[in-house]
């Protein structure tokens, strides 16, 4: 039973293993090496409702593409295409 297992774990240092769906970098899969700052619909997918850039562990992007997404979002913000924040 799940409950018993939780109880057994109490006090022990054994890490909780959480396996979800394996994430993959969407841009690597599409072999894109550029993220356009004008493509707002795409960039919105990597932002929270509050307008913050989603973390890599959430989006599953590789570090290279996450960086491109981040700069693209920042460029779009400068041009008032995307919000800096939205309460």
């Amino acid at each position: 039973m799940a409950r018993d297992r939780d109880r057994d774990r109490r006090g022990s240092k054994a890490p909780v293993v959480r396996r979800g769906k394996k994430k993959y970098c969407q841009f690597c899969a599409d072999q894109q090496d550029y993220v356009d700052y004008k493509d707002i619909a795409l960039l919105r997918k990597f932002m929270s409702d509050r307008g913050k850039i989603r973390a890599r562990r959430v989006t599953g992007n590789c570090s290279q593409h996450q960086r491109l997404v981040a700069t693209a979002v920042k460029n779009a913000r400068e041009m008032a295409l995307l919000p800096y924040t939205s309460r």
Partner: peptide
Amino acid sequence: GKIVRPGTG
């Protein structure tokens, strides 16, 4: 205004 090199960002 913003000037970028397309393909590099």
